[in-house]
Design a protein around this nucleic acid. Structure first.
Lengths: 103, 103
DNA sequence: CATAATCGGTTTATTTTGTAAACTGGTTTA
DNA sequence: TAAACCAGTTTACAAAATAAACCGATTATG
């Protein structure tokens, strides 16, 4: 019988749970699309760290990363995939069921 | 001016945020006191991992670890400190303000 | 018009975590 | 008295987060 305990920490998706990535996912869930620079500014993180974490989300299929040019400046746009949105919703559910109605 | 953005991931206490430790803190917030063995069972984690993570919480002053004997068996009881309870409450606040009313 | 600073990132290296495996010391059971 | 078990700790290894260094293009600056 699978665990249905209130303390089922195994259900928490580590790929999302990481602080920075949780910030990205939360922001994107709201914003639909965001520039790399925008994410960096709003989350107050370093480029390097953001770059690495975005790649992890991309590898997981949770976001897409699209490079284009705006005039002559490059621009990197990030958005949630359908899977990413689903995973985020599941994550929130798992989190809520863990920490519960305290929230 | 300090950030008051909805996306202030810096406010999330990493010491609590880790999956296993979050489980411990959540359980203790409910239970007031728990045995090592009880935590191991309810969170379904290995002893080694639990031992390490409990020590981190102890070092941070979030829990106390008290060893005693029950008959001739050793027993390890863990409970939240005042600081721990406060930190957990703050953590929940930060988390809620990040992921918001979705929860 | 060089060259220095800035933008928008990526890559690499280092540090910090998390997890698993192995070990310890005592206890019960056979 | 040996085998199995309980209650953990320590140590070693793998994975993750973060920081530092680097890169290529663009935009000021002397």
């Amino acid at each position: 019988m699978p665990s249905v305990s209130r303390f089922d920490i195994a259900k928490i998706d580590d790929l999302i749970h990481s602080r920075l990535r949780l910030g990205v996912m939360t922001y994107l869930a709201d914003a639909e699309v965001a520039d790399f620079t925008e994410l960096k500014a709003v989350l107050e993180v370093t480029q390097g760290n953001l770059s690495v974490q975005l790649r992890k989300l991309e590898d997981a299929g949770y976001v897409t990363i699209e490079k284009s040019f705006l005039g002559r400046k490059s621009r990197t746009q990030v958005r949630l995939t359908k899977d990413g949105r689903k995973a985020f919703a599941d994550y929130l559910k798992a989190l809520e069921s863990l920490v519960g109605r305290g929230m």
